[in-house]
Design a protein around this nucleic acid. Structure first.
Lengths: 197, 197
DNA sequence: CGAAAGATGACACCTGACGTCATGTTTTTC
DNA sequence: GAAAAACATGACGTCAGGTGTCATCTTTCG
């Protein structure tokens, strides 16, 4: 899904400061052209992302970003809070767009707002099995989430990252293998190199 | 978008107890076939929706639903809360899927969880202009939101519904009119009859 | 100057989403 | 019991969005 990948792109840019388009293409498992298209879409949507050309160019998120843009009132946030304590289970299992997007945001939360929600996000990250007990059709999204979680883990608890890996790999590949001729990295199972610096 | 409509379908079913497929088709401005497909998708996603055949059949949401399914822990909800107070502005303007979906949920919130968030949702519903001051590309989504809001208003504050209607109508119709041959109700401006009983 | 990387346009392919048509099946109503 | 209304399902065609690939061009750094 495109919206899904846009979110991942944004989170990747928030985590690392600057990434080259080929690098992003590898991480997101799409072509460089698609990465540039996505960057254009992000920029058109108001995300302060800009690019730098030349030898060591790359995609850069505006440094001042990631902190309080505060587009939402406390009231609105509270409304969401109330909503999410109740109905959300259905709405999460309902559509991959909202569901997986929120989960990805949640997974990447500590990087953005580490101050108040780190413990919460830690629980979610450490125990991804819980997601598997969700709605029945969680195969693909659980896999994607596991991959994403693993990446995040590499950043936070580098020691405890191994051994908790899902048995099936093939990130972003559908079980039917229909999408395999597209991506060039369908065989990879371990998380990609991570610029741990 | 399909995910968007699935959410609307769920909310419609939550508001009214039971609706026939042709009725839903009219409200959602799609064909009956699509409504049935959507119901199937909802059901496959774990939403307890069932159908009743025969003369006065219809689509019914399980009565026990809408209250605490509690698929999300308070921790997770708090994580979302923290998230939505911060980064959300970008993520809202970013992708219509998450953004408009959340707004629709928020708009329909009082029907579901009237107890704790009515005042919040009321503020949101009464002052939709605020959404217009968001990211620049909010044309279509703002229109859709306005239409949706108007419908909700008819239910809650029947007296104050008029006069605050957006100048452009054509709900769910793209400005280019590309989608017009599909939907059968592209010309309508006023909200549809609402079963106000 | 050459290599690496972003920028852009064009073209083809594929898939998901819809509408339409056709045909059953079930339930209510007359 | 027949007709009507409504759900159920399969098939087929259309259409637009998303992607990959190819081809150039421009910019920056070594």
């Amino acid at each position: 899904m495109r919206a899904d990948r846009l979110l991942s792109l944004l989170l990747l840019l928030q985590t690392h400061g600057r990434l080259s388009a080929p690098d992003l293409a590898g991480r997101l498992e799409v072509s460089v052209r698609t990465v540039l298209r996505d960057v254009e879409a992000l920029s058109a949507s108001g995300v302060p992302v800009y690019t730098e050309r030349g030898r060591h160019g790359g995609i850069v998120l505006m440094p001042g970003f990631r902190t309080d843009v505060t587009g939402m009132t406390a009231d609105e946030a509270r409304a969401l809070f109330v909503l999410l304590t109740g109905t959300t289970h259905a709405s999460l299992g309902l559509e991959a767009a909202v569901g997986s997007a929120l989960r990805k945001i949640m997974a990447a939360l500590p990087a953005a707002h580490r101050d108040a929600a780190d413990l919460v996000a830690r629980r979610i990250i450490i125990d991804p099995v819980r997601w598997r007990s969700g709605p029945a059709s969680a195969d693909l999204s659980t896999l994607q989430e596991a991959v994403f979680t693993d990446r995040r883990l590499r950043l936070r608890y580098r020691a405890a990252s191994s051994g908790r890996r899902p048995e099936r790999c093939s990130p972003r590949g559908r079980p039917s293998g229909r999408r395999s001729p597209r991506g060039r990295h369908s065989e990879r199972c371990a998380p990609r190199g991570q610029h741990t610096g």
